[in-house]
Design a protein around this nucleic acid. Structure first.
Lengths: 336, 336
DNA sequence: GAATTTTGGTAAAACGTTATATCAACTGTT
DNA sequence: AACAGTTGATATAACGTTTTACCAAAATTC
């Protein structure tokens, strides 16, 4: 008990060779019941756990999957992770998670760390400004990779994402159907592909329905940012009666600003969110939003990677999940 | 570019031996500027990333830290992780995270996986029902370990936690000072040490102030659970005018129930939360709560582990963070 | 110009496993 | 009693690095 036990320690304890111990533990080879018991007893007595680095190095096995995501804290991502993790565990894989915080340098470090530890595969939400060099890296390592939410520009990896444009188009149409003529969008700017797609959907409907030029507002991702943006928007464009948001947090923040200013979301200004996080249904009034199923997306994401590991030569697949409109209390006809 | 590049590939490409490549990459040994450049060029050309398993196996270095936590999704934990991660990265360590979902079996699997990959150290929120065998395992592996939030019963590991009893005592006193006589507690039962400590603090003040028998209500951890519990409590004990909660989510859920039933938190029923999550300040009315600094706790947690790695023989340390009362809108004198 | 030191590089052993080939000891068959 | 087949275990060679000891050539000293 004075040192980390290794194979040789167990072998000596059981009075056999290291090869025998290895075979017993792995269940391979021919071994008598008697020595099997002897070895097993010694192993548990010493609390032996094999050194996976050495084992994996020799056997070439890789049953660990890496996940690099842009924000673990995000509740949507948390659900995704839970889906990924459940499926992988049920198939005997293990998941190890790293947070890139949407920073290209940190992302690079994390990816390299995964490569160094020779993961079996990679699930990856690329940072918004991932440089080409990082893509080259993954290519050179021949690391089986599935991108999530944000596709890699080269399109060489499997991808799981959301029908973003269609979703915001549907949200915008819903508001237009209610009679709104002045519809703004919260969540512009940055170089994010996802945001760009969503803005496209919104702008397309604005054009098709002849609702004037799109009014895209730059916001962050949290409640605070939504609240501030709402105040700024109302000061600059009092004619706006409806709002499509890039995320539920922003939408809830916007609703909060209205309430604090004595207005009623859904009557004075209509708001549509995106994601359908738990708080969306619990807010008052409850939030109308574009719902997606993060848990199911997580499961699918894991499934795609496992398929890729099984069939390395298959052409890259693309899976897009639809978002469905959930009408609650924050949308209604325009006032007056 | 047809295979994952290894040291030998780079050596051949640069026309030198593998030893030389290793020395150049590690910056050790004596090497001429000329071959240094040659090797570096070859390495980047091939996008070479060393196999960390082999490297770590040979060198015995362990600069990766494992974190096993009971719920990544929890926003409090997310902040903690961010603190841990920042400090570790600044010291050149890498963090790998696993979610035990508070399940002893899953926890065991995750811990074993960390041991197999020979992490340098372990940060650990023990599951509520961690068996002794798991403690034996960590002991036998001589794995430097720091427990977080929930101390291991044996007390042999370093620990970072919260002054739970003192915090709930302060919350309860605050309500008593305002004149409340009927104070309930949300977040009872389960075998959780943390919950037990918090209940103790509440119960102690109830006794000291002669406020009658403690009224401890069993709840979960989320808004929904708080909302349901509030309704049930009001039906069973209409005399209750104040509430101490095990967490902000539960507290916000309780406040929500009041609002939905036409009452006003802070006037009809006073509520104190725990954690001070972002939403606490943004709720309306904003939540009075016991604030802790998860980010700072995370940094300290990482620091304690690094100290332990440096000084393996030092006696186990215990660090407890205070919670400070933040009075906002959900507490006031009792009605009438 | 012989002896010494410095420089720049390599061969080879080691890390803790798993896989392969081999071997000794039985068992059963003619 | 000689042979083949089976069983149970072991010695040994990998896996991809890092490290140590060593060596040849160049530079310095006397």
């Amino acid at each position: 008990m004075t040192e980390k036990p290794k194979l040789e320690t167990v072998a000596r304890e059981a009075g056999v060779s290291t090869a025998t111990v290895s075979q017993v533990l792995r269940g391979t080879g021919r071994i008598s019941e008697q020595t099997r018991k002897k070895v097993l007893a010694a192993a548990t007595r010493l609390h032996y756990v094999p050194d996976g680095r050495a084992a994996a190095m020799r056997s070439g096995e890789r049953r660990e999957i890496g996940l690099v995501i842009q924000a673990i804290a995000n509740p949507f991502n948390a659900e995704v992770i839970s889906g990924v993790s459940d499926l992988l565990e049920s198939e005997g894989y293990l998941l190890s998670i790293r947070d890139s915080q949407d920073d290209a340098a940190r992302e690079r470090r994390n990816l390299e760390a995964f490569i160094r530890s020779s993961r079996g595969g990679l699930l990856w939400v690329p940072a918004n400004d991932t440089p080409d060099a990082t893509l080259d890296l993954l290519r050179a390592q021949r690391m089986p990779t599935v991108t999530f939410l944000r596709p890699a520009p080269s399109g060489e990896f499997d991808h799981v994402g959301i029908r973003n444009a269609r979703a915001t188009a549907e949200a915008t149409s819903h508001l237009a159907d209610l009679g709104h003529r002045h519809i703004a969008y919260f969540g512009g700017a940055t170089t994010s592909v996802v945001r760009a797609e969503r803005i496209d959907g919104y702008a397309r409907v604005m054009g098709e329905r002849d609702l004037g030029p799109p009014l895209v507002w730059e916001t962050g991702d949290d409640k605070l940012s939504g609240r501030d943006a709402m105040r700024a928007l109302r000061a600059a464009h009092p004619e706006v009666t409806a709002l499509v948001c890039n995320g539920d947090m922003v939408a809830l923040g916007a609703a909060l600003a209205l309430i604090e200013d004595g207005l009623t979301p859904g009557r004075d200004v209509s708001i549509v969110g995106f994601d359908d996080i738990q708080d969306a249904a619990l807010a008052s009034p409850p939030l109308t939003t574009m719902a997606i199923s993060p848990y199911q997306m997580g499961r699918k994401l894991a499934r795609v990677l496992l398929d890729r590991l099984r069939e390395p030569a298959a052409p890259p697949s693309i899976t897009l999940f639809p978002a469905t409109l959930v009408v609650r209390g924050t949308t209604g006809p325009p006032p007056g």
